[in-house]
Design a protein around this nucleic acid. Structure first.
Lengths: 340, 340
DNA sequence: CTGTTAGCGCTTTCAA
DNA sequence: TTGAAAGCGCTAACAG
């Protein structure tokens, strides 16, 4: 069968305690002894049982990652980045996909992460107090991604300012009727972008002295099809917008497509701007707000790991990090290229 | 602190063995006793330590999922589906993202899944013998997704036939010069589609008596940008193709975009067909081969779980399942719509 | 620098 | 139907 620590000890002619120390690289093990242990372990193709180690040590070397979706660019990128960083640190990644409303409720009710993680990463969810309490009750470090909250580690962008910069750009181009295609701010699966990006949109209009027309705010549900439908509605109005700010690139793709189907020229008849800068957006010539997703994920993951290892006062160093976004200008808002 | 099984036992006035039985729903526990235990556990907000349970029982209630990428539609869909199915069955999902060539090598060398999973799911990787051996050495059930191999559970589509149906469709429309935009069959991160879809492409040409022109096979690396570059190259040739079969929708998007930039009309000047049927493809009016990703993932996950639970002879029942694909006809190959 | 020993919190015989 | 007790395979004092 598969080797245990006793087998290694016997083969190396030492006690199991010494094997444990040698294999974990602890100090105070004679070089010769360590070598013999390493050799014996290699000969037997030994790996320690993580469960036994976790039970004995109380450390799980595991981080839970909570996401509302997995098959969306932002979240897939987060999962990818976090997995890589954690793996490199010797940690396991336990993925928790919330699923629908009921799944979310059950999750925070049951807290399946209990007793199985050293830390938690939460991606871009608007958490209510109950949910924050559930997280806090875990009594483990928590890293927030895309949101910020007193007492929690976090990395995010400034969604409000970023959205505002997008709309400012449109205003600067002379647009007066600017529509918003966004997410549902009341969605039970609510995540943060819809809330803040909408606020940024409204702020920009207000600052420019433009009246916010509620009829120009339309839900696109963060999908391509939703974006297309929203655009269809907006463009069919008696007083259609001359520009659209979509809260995600995917919704912008839908809007572009719909505009093109209606025979509109981009950007002359309709300017479109997205949010994210997914890989496809360059090809689409879509002006968009680029956000550094991998950077956010890496940043908070790294600091969470430091906190777990309790390397010094990592706790109080920059608990809340805000990463910069960048407006990427392409032909969907300026110039005379002919996107999508 | 947090409650342990002893606390529950004390509160319920029974032994810890009884608590264990009652909580796991084992038979031979008096109803009254079970109720008292359940109540006590609920009062204390008790959950069992998974590590202690795993150490004692030898079962990990964990499945490892190995993927070459996470931020690609196919794999994200697989992760999503598997996570949901496993969670529902009370299993944890341990995600292993191979990363680059070196990461892949290290993975199969070290086998970080050792001693921590009851079963393994491998998505769409062309495994060499060394890698298959490493998997087998785990001595745990393995489910294959997208590939098939004697002695392993699997769910896949028939990539060769599916690709062939796509190319047959183009041939049926009178195309003679049909290009292929595909993946690298020699890539160290090789996954299965490039190999089989290329074969299907060649088969179709041969069956139709068309000569396969090596110059018409171009790498697109399964990215939008790669597809665009490949199309740029192909369309700039002295004898450009009249149709393109892309081994993935994303590469097809790139090709469509490039064709449009060149001023070509779709499908009159150039017909394009993709593979996958991602959500965006309907909007793009892209003809494509739809494959049931969630179905494949759910199918093999379910059977893997059955095998782990050793419910009867699940082992020998349909070890290799092949799910149907479907050619979805849209305007990129027929009609007069004007995609992308 | 190394060994002994007592757990970690469960599951699982075995007896009663 | 229940309890006692022996592990599961490690880690972490503690002693030497």
């Amino acid at each position: 069968m598969v080797a245990s620590i006793e087998d290694v000890a016997r083969r190396a002619g030492v006690s199991i305690a010494t094997v444990s120390r040698a294999l974990r690289g602890l100090p105070d093990v004679a070089t010769g002894t360590r070598d013999r242990v390493l050799t014996a372990a290699a000969d037997l193709n030994y790996v320690a049982s993580p469960f036994a180690a976790r039970l004995a040590s109380g450390r799980t070397t595991t981080v839970g990652l909570v996401v509302p979706f997995v098959n969306r660019w932002f979240f897939a990128e987060v999962i990818d980045t976090a997995e890589t960083a954690l793996r490199r640190a010797g940690f396991d990644l336990l993925l928790y996909n919330l699923g629908d409303r009921e799944g979310r409720h059950r999750f925070f009710d049951v807290m399946p992460m209990r007793k199985r993680v050293d830390g938690v990463l939460v991606a871009s969810l608007v958490l209510d107090d109950f949910e924050f309490d559930a997280l806090t009750a875990l009594n483990r470090p928590v890293g927030l991604l895309g949101i910020e909250r007193e007492g929690f580690l976090s990395a995010r962008i400034d969604d409000i300012a970023a959205a505002r910069s997008a709309v400012d750009h449109l205003i600067g181009q002379g647009h007066q009727r600017i529509a918003l295609i966004g997410g549902d701010t009341d969605d039970p699966m609510r995540f943060t972008p819809p809330l803040h990006r909408r606020d940024g949109y409204r702020d920009a209009l207000e600052a420019a002295g433009l009246e916010a027309d509620p009829a120009l705010e339309r839900l696109g549900f963060f999908t391509v099809e939703g974006g297309a439908e929203a655009a269809r509605y907006l463009l069919a109005r008696p007083d259609p917008p001359t520009a659209i700010f979509a809260e995600s690139d995917e919704m912008a793709y839908g809007a572009l497509r719909e505009a093109r189907r209606s025979g509109l020229r981009i950007p002359d008849d309709l300017a479109v701007i997205g949010f994210d800068d997914q890989p496809l957006s360059e090809l689409m010539d879509l002006t968009t707000v680029r956000q550094p997703v991998a950077d956010q994920a890496l940043d908070v993951t790294t600091r969470l790991l430091a906190l777990i290892s309790e390397t010094e006062d990592a706790l109080n160093r920059d608990p809340a990090v805000v990463l910069p976004t960048e407006l990427v200008l392409r032909a969907s808002t300026e110039g005379d290229a002919d996107p999508l």
